[in-house]
């Protein structure tokens, strides 16, 4: 099986869907001539031409709204936000228009649009460019939110997102773009809403999404090597829809939970999942649910301190031991 990068996996997903459906198009800042600010769309303009791969001005409210309007007529725009952080410039378009359109029209209108881009910190680009808005997005009924942690999932999930008839916010990670893994050259789809057991274990469930899954896997390895602790690592992959069954099955098995994520702690995805666990699996818990998130302040620039602000494998390791105390 070919070993390719996360960014190549995304590109393959888009190319396959461009080949399959003439209504699919790529649009965003620098996606064409520049070959993508993070080279995710590299080569697509040369292959598919200016009709299908469209460079936009820096105008997020305008072009995201345009994509939503076009999706109402049946196009399937895949919109790139150079940084997902720029979603806030288009907030009204995404959360008033795309999220509510089907509802306010009594089911007459759909918005089959994908808005994708990197949503992460850790690259010393300061608070404005380091937002992780999974929970803000998933808060809105009508919106779906997907966060792949590796290239294999990125390809299969992006293809499903493009074919989905509801608006999907697809949050990637610049720190993962260069990571490699085995990705089939042929077509495959991963349904939204299915979590994945990345590592089986019996002593503790570490549940998260995005880049923290790669950290959790490292921490789980160390836990086993140093303490013989078998941690189970669950990658949510999709925030809304959410695979509650896989979460709860793991909790019932291990009886101890550490929730990890890169976002800030208040009203975050882990806060919601902690709530679900206490509602639906309270009797299976042998210890309070613990969360590990970013430190609760705007993303700091200072490179060594940004590392401190974000989760790390070491912090996950330490938090896991505390859950097991």
């Amino acid at each position: 099986m070919p070993v390719i990068t996360y960014r190549e996996a995304l590109r393959h997903a888009m190319a396959e869907e461009l080949d399959r459906d003439p209504n699919v198009l790529i649009m965003g800042e620098e996606v064409g001539q520049f070959n993508g600010a993070y080279k995710v769309t590299e080569g697509l303009l040369a292959k598919y031409g200016e009709k299908r791969v469209i460079d936009t001005p820096i105008s997020e409210a305008g072009f995201i709204g345009l994509g939503i309007g076009a999706s109402m007529l049946g196009l399937r725009p895949v919109m790139e936000l150079m940084f997902f952080s720029f979603y806030s410039v288009a907030f009204d378009q995404i959360f008033n228009n795309a999220a509510n359109m089907r509802y306010m029209s009594g089911g007459l209108i759909n918005c089959p649009i994908v808005i994708r881009g990197p949503a992460n910190g850790g690259t010393n680009v300061g608070a404005t460019h380091s937002h992780t808005p999974e929970s803000i997005a998933a808060y809105h009924p009508g919106i779906k939110v997907v966060v792949p942690s590796n290239g294999y999932d990125a390809k299969g999930l992006l293809k499903s997102a493009i074919r989905d008839n509801d608006p999907v916010l697809f949050m990637e990670n610049t720190m993962l773009y260069g990571d490699t893994c085995e990705v089939p050259a042929e077509e495959y789809l991963i349904p939204l809403g299915s979590a994945k057991v990345m590592r089986e274990g019996t002593d503790l469930s570490i549940i998260g999404h995005g880049r923290t899954i790669q950290m959790a896997l490292k921490a789980a390895q160390t836990l086993e090597e140093k303490h013989g602790i078998k941690a189970e690592v669950i990658d949510l992959r999709s925030i809304r829809p959410l695979d509650e069954e896989t979460i709860l099955a793991s909790v019932r098995k291990t009886n101890r939970v550490l929730l990890v994520e890169e976002a800030k702690p208040f009203c975050s995805v882990s806060a919601m999942i902690a709530c679900i666990i206490q509602e639906k699996a309270f009797d299976h818990l042998d210890a309070p649910v613990r969360r590990l998130t970013s430190m609760d302040a705007p993303a700091i620039y200072c490179p060594p301190l940004e590392k401190e602000q974000l989760p790390t494998p070491q912090k996950i390791f330490t938090a896991a031991l505390e859950v097991l105390k």
């Binding site: 409210a61 305008g62 709204g65 999706s71």
Partner: peptide, 16 residues
């Protein structure tokens, strides 16, 4: 807020 949607509709007509 509807104006970006309006140009999106026009875009789709031209695209098709």
């Amino acid at each position: 807020g509807q104006i970006p949607l309006g140009i999106g509709i026009a875009f789709a007509l031209k695209y098709k």
